[in-house]
């Protein structure tokens, strides 16, 4: 991994169209500005990982699970009527 030291107000460029700005450093928190083209998605890693993990969980669904979800749905709807 490439490690660079930067001061507040300085920046890093990645490729031609991504720029990372160090905006503020306070204690152990760093405020970072990111300029990237629209097709590049930027996420806080923990949120990204959570969605990724949930997608993996969701992909385990089987036809049987779907049937039981549908049965539950019908059951609920018939009670509401």
């Amino acid at each position: 991994m490439l490690v660079l030291t930067r001061k507040t107000g300085e920046s890093i460029t990645i490729g031609d169209d991504i720029r990372i700005f160090i905006q503020e450093v306070r204690g152990n928190q760093v405020k970072i500005g990111i300029q990237a083209p629209p097709h590049v998605t930027v996420h806080r890693e923990e949120i990204y990982l959570r969605i990724q993990e949930e997608n993996k969980e969701a992909s385990r669904a089987t036809k049987d699970m779907m049937q039981s979800a549908f049965a539950q749905f019908k059951n609920k709807r018939s009670k509401e009527k």
């Binding site: 949120i47 959570r50 969605i51 949930e54 997608n55 969980e57 969701a58 385990r60 669904a61 089987t62 049987d64 699970m65 779907m66 039981s68 979800a69 539950q72």
Partner: peptide
């Protein structure tokens, strides 16, 4: 939204964040 079904009726969930 994408659903996670897990197999039990108690824990079917929807991913509203993604």
């Amino acid at each position: 939204v994408i659903l996670s079904l897990y197999g039990g009726i108690n824990d079917m969930t929807a991913n509203l964040q993604g």
